[in-house]
Simulated scan of single mutants.
Amino acid sequence: MAGLGRTRIAFPSQFASAFSFHRKFAICLTSSTTSNGVIFFGDGPYVLLPNINVSQSLIYTPLFINPVSTASAYIAGEPSAEYFIGVKSIKVDDKDVPVNTTLLSIDSEGYGGTKISTVNPYTILETSIYNALTEAFINETAARNITRVASVAPFGVCFSSENVLSTRVGPSVPTISLVLQNETVSWSIFGANSMVQVSEDVLCLGFVNGGENPRTSIVIGGHQLEDNLLQFDLATSRLGFSSTLLGRQTTCSNFNFTSNP
């Protein structure tokens, strides 16, 4: 286990101090069970096989600090060391999902907002956001003649894979978009990151219900991060993200440790 938070004792800060580079790191989690992903400390370029420089296509959004720690154990008055981004709205196939936007902001007591977590395997949503997203997703899949089937824990919404085509970016299902600081900046979540294959003929939406009044309204989990390169710039408090690398015909397991500088 490696600490990658904002604290001064975490790896990014210690490495930056020891080797005199910027307080910046990037993670690229693989979806493969047999190949490794990669973590870069310091700046890029981030070059993946076959000679694709992902650095050139990163989209940037501000990182925010929650004034109240969201850790399981913390000192009173200590700000959160985790990474929060500002989701303004959610879309499914470019259609707005009706959500209570006050839940998307962090209040004075540290509740609400959106954080990135490699600890949680799947994205966790506050109940009303979960219900609105799943309803919109179900409606859009029905329009594609994708049949809903019985749920498989921990997922609440599952489908038959019978009418779901396979594409370069995963199962052909509606695209979920997290709209960030404005309408032109969004994190697109395609089938490879939105769906989980739970059996040969059943796919489930890889988002789970986090209950009412959770500490954080949206926690983006590991499955949604796979084959996405994320650059955390602590010095300037911004996140660079690639969205799925599958559309560029590469993956997070395509870093060649023998040839990259």
Rank of each mutant, 00 (worst) to 15 (best):
L178P: 06
P214W: 05
L178T: 09
P154T: 12
I218A: 11
M195Y: 07
E226H: 07
R144H: 01
V119W: 06
N120H: 15
V99H: 11
V149I: 13
V97T: 08
S194M: 08
V196N: 10
A142I: 12
S128I: 04
E226A: 13
G211T: 03
A132I: 02
L229Y: 06
A136E: 09
T118L: 11
D201L: 09
G191D: 09
S128N: 10
M195H: 06
T167L: 06
F190V: 12
G156E: 05
I176F: 00
V208T: 15
E135N: 15
D94W: 12
V196D: 08
A142M: 10
T175L: 09
R144W: 01
G112I: 10
A132M: 06
S217Q: 06
T175C: 00
K95C: 01
S105A: 15
T102D: 15
V173M: 02
T102V: 15
N163V: 02
L225Y: 05
V169E: 14
V152R: 14
D93C: 10
H223A: 13
D94Q: 10
M195D: 06
I218W: 07
R168Y: 04
P121D: 03
S186Q: 12
S117A: 15
C204H: 05
V164K: 13
E200V: 11
L133Q: 01
I220P: 13
S105C: 04
T123S: 15
V185M: 09
L203A: 03
F137D: 03
S194K: 05
Y130V: 02
N131D: 13
Q231M: 09
I138H: 10
